[in-house]
Design a protein around this nucleic acid. Structure first.
Lengths: 213, 213
DNA sequence: ACGAAAATACTGACCGCACGGTACACTCGG
DNA sequence: CCGAGTGTACCGTGCGGTCAGTATTTTCGT
């Protein structure tokens, strides 16, 4: 045939395609390996060859599945961010009172962040290694996720069940929710559910209107 | 003299020496430049040559003042950690009631962390690039610093002015104090003092004993 | 059912280069 | 003229990425 036998761009499709290829599984293995290594050592300190080693793929073959190292970083992060956004929006849509909704949001986020502890670590530490466009795409998802907190807080204030708080405190709340991923280790003295519960309690206490001094 | 004219280890002394050399000032400039760049781009993503450029020193001359890139990273971090530890211990030594002491501790730490925002960013992101010995030296200082919080909490519980809290919440408190450095920008809508005040209020509320539901 | 063509998946050698670090000759103030 | 401090040229290496070619699976005409 007249078509060149060696194609210069063999990549089958979009980054997150669910293409019915067998090698899709390989890509998942690569992303999983990268997640572990990036979280352990950091993006810049991890040679791409190590990712290949852990995934059982030669360096050359790696580049059949990914476009670049940065591409891999993005793949790791975007999955997590999207899943989280979706979960948060589901909580938001439930027809509940603000207090209970907040409790569920906190619980969901803490659990979700501990489940994806590695991705969170990578996001915080290495997100700046992304190209500007991809970074802002991720930050967009992130912002939309955290807007859920604002919205519930507003609902609570409107209903009179929460006191209005300064933006400083609001950011502090977000920090409280994210915090456990810095120190949590599976098998530690507290389960993720217990952690979530303690934090939810503490937050509720801090938000109660006209709280006793 | 019989000493070789070209010394293989020309470094005058310890990392934090106050040796009476004029070029000590140059070293400070280098450390300052490194602090800025490491904070902006991360340790691994910053070529040592860029540090030289910003400090107005050629790459070769750089190595007259520092032993290695990692040496520079340590220099940046250890100054901050030691200063912080000292300040915290001063607060601790004051003869005050636990509640007031806690308020002062929170205020001091928030202010101090915002003053040294860059060092904090670097510590969180890049500390693992240090050799094991130096890393544990730093972590030691860090731990001793945060023990101040534990101690005050214990005092408060003993005096009955604070309720006992779960370790999860205790770590959350630390997270609250550290949190502002992630988002604070000089010239923003809140001054560091205001931030400290809001957080101290929120924390006091969360710790009040038998707080109204 | 079969085999050839084509798409898919992988190999391993190679490239260019940026980086951390060194060698060493110089300069210039005291 | 000494030596603290600097500039420049250089070195080795580890890295991200490419590419020509090969193996393996899938497709499909007959």
């Amino acid at each position: 045939m007249s078509v060149a036998p060696h194609r210069s761009r063999p990549h089958p499709g979009l980054p997150l395609d669910a293409l019915t290829h067998r090698g899709y599984e390989t890509r998942q293995r690569i992303v999983a390996a990268a997640t572990e290594l990036f979280a352990e050592r950091g993006y810049h300190a991890t040679p791409i060859s190590d990712v290949g080693d852990r995934a059982g793929v030669q360096r050359g073959a790696l580049y059949y599945h990914i476009k670049s190292k940065e591409d891999l970083l993005f793949a790791v992060l975007v999955q997590h961010a999207q899943a989280m956004l979706q979960g948060v929006q589901e909580v938001l849509a439930q027809p509940l009172e603000a207090e209970e909704k907040l409790r569920r949001l906190v619980t969901y986020m803490v659990l979700s962040l501990l489940e994806r502890q590695q991705e969170m670590t990578i996001y915080e530490r290495d997100r700046r290694a992304l190209t500007a466009g991809r970074l802002s795409e991720l930050q967009d998802i992130h912002e939309r996720t955290w807007q859920a907190l604002d919205q519930i807080l507003q609902e609570g204030v409107a209903a009179g069940t929460m006191r209005p708080i300064d933006p400083v405190v609001r950011k502090g709340l977000a920090g409280l929710i994210v915090n456990p991923h810095h120190w949590y280790r599976p098998g530690g003295p507290r389960t993720p559910s217990e952690i979530a519960e303690h934090l939810a309690d503490f937050i509720r206490g801090g938000l109660a209107p006209a709280s006793a001094k």
